[in-house]
Simulated scan of single mutants.
Amino acid sequence: MPSPSVAEAAEFHSRALDALRQPLESGHVVIARAAGVVRLPARFLMVLAANPCPCGRHTLHGAGCECPPSVIRRYQARLSGPLLDRVDLRVEVEPVTRCDLLGQGGRGESTAVVADRVRQALERAAARLADTPWRLNSEVPGQELRTRWQAGPGALAPAERDLERGLLTARGLDRVLRVAWTVADLRGRDRPEALDVAVALELRTGIARGAMSLPGAGT
Rank of each mutant, 00 (worst) to 15 (best):
V38A: 15
R57W: 06
E92F: 01
Y75T: 04
C65V: 03
G81I: 02
P54N: 01
L60S: 09
A35Q: 14
P82M: 08
R33C: 01
V30L: 07
V37A: 15
G62E: 09
R86E: 03
H58W: 10
A63E: 10
R74S: 15
A32P: 05
L48N: 08
R33T: 07
L40Q: 13
P52V: 09
G56C: 03
S70C: 11
G64D: 10
P82H: 14
C67G: 01
C65H: 04
S80P: 05
P41H: 03
R57V: 03
A32Q: 14
A63L: 08
G62W: 02
V47K: 04
A63N: 11
D85C: 04
L79H: 05
P69Q: 06
V91Y: 10
G56L: 12
L48M: 14
R86G: 08
G64K: 04
C67F: 05
F44S: 05
I72Y: 00
L84Y: 10
R43W: 00
C65L: 08
A32H: 13
I31N: 06
V37W: 09
T59W: 13
V38D: 15
G64M: 09
L89S: 09
D88N: 06
F44K: 03
R78A: 00
L40C: 13
D88E: 12
A35V: 12
L40S: 12
V30W: 02
L45M: 15
S70Y: 11
P69M: 07
N51F: 04
A77R: 14
F44P: 00
I31V: 15
R86Q: 06
E92H: 10
Y75N: 09
H58G: 07
G36L: 12
C67R: 05
V30C: 13
G56Q: 00
C53L: 07
G36A: 12
C55M: 03
R74A: 15
A63G: 13
E92Q: 13
P68C: 06
V87H: 10
L48R: 04
V87W: 06
A50C: 11
R78H: 02
R86I: 01
P68L: 06
L84H: 12
V87T: 08
V71W: 03
M46Y: 07
A50I: 07
T59S: 13
C67T: 06
V38C: 13
L84A: 07
C67D: 07
A77Y: 06
D85T: 02
D88S: 13
A35D: 15
R78E: 03
P82Y: 15
L48G: 12
V91E: 11
N51C: 05
V38K: 15
P54V: 04
I31G: 07
D88M: 12
I72K: 05
A63Q: 11
D88L: 11
Q76D: 03
V87G: 11
V30G: 09
L79I: 02
R90G: 01
H58Y: 13
L45A: 09
L60T: 09
A35Y: 05
C65A: 09
L48I: 02
R86T: 06
